[in-house]
Amino acid sequence: MIRQPLLRGGVFLAALIPPLVWFYQALSNALGPDPGKVLLDRLGQGALILLLLTLCLSPLQWATRWSGWAHIRRQLGLWTFAYACLHLVAYLLFVLGLDFTQLAVELRKRPYIIVGALAWSGLLALALTSNRASMRRLGARWKKLHRLVYAVLGLALLHMLWIVRSDIGLWLVYFSCGALLLALRLPPASRLLKKLRGTRPAPAQVSR
């Protein structure tokens, strides 16, 4: 039996609907004269937001008594990968126009595309090993491998920083969230979070 079906279903729909809406908007000329570029940007930022949400789950679990957080972790991670794949497809289709000779040139010359490709490869490795069989087979090494997610976060932020042209306000928001989530994983902070759970009964409701 699937535990937390409502939560899981809700997460599924919440992650599925935005790209469908964006795609519909792009086809109905609601995204302006360069819809491919807008889709590309939204999918990229969507992937980054999903990655940050995925990284919220462990600290939330430490800080509350509720164990439900763990049940959506794999799904959010896979959604991050799905958005990253759509982002990549949008790049290949709408920016590159499927001109793969140009892709070789871009990969050689553009650091932000190399960094993006590395981040995507990291997510690919995580997605491929996200199933139970891989967890069992890899054993203790699985946890080590999945620390790769922190490197992916760093690469994704760098990828975005290199695209910013004039105003880094939005990037700083993502960067701060990412930095905070990493800081919460340092032993002193995580100990504090766990103490929080011990002294106070956590609210029972699902906050989404």
């Binding site: 792009a26 086809l27 004269p33 360069d34 819809p35 491919g36 889709l39 553009r110 650091p111 932000y112």
Partner: peptide, 19 residues
């Protein structure tokens, strides 16, 4: 440009499937 090629351009409006 160090971050992208200047050899080609997207003439706007540029459709999703007819770039």
């Amino acid at each position: 440009h160090p971050r992208w090629t200047q050899a080609r351009e997207r003439r706007l409006p540029s459709g999703l499937f007819s770039p």
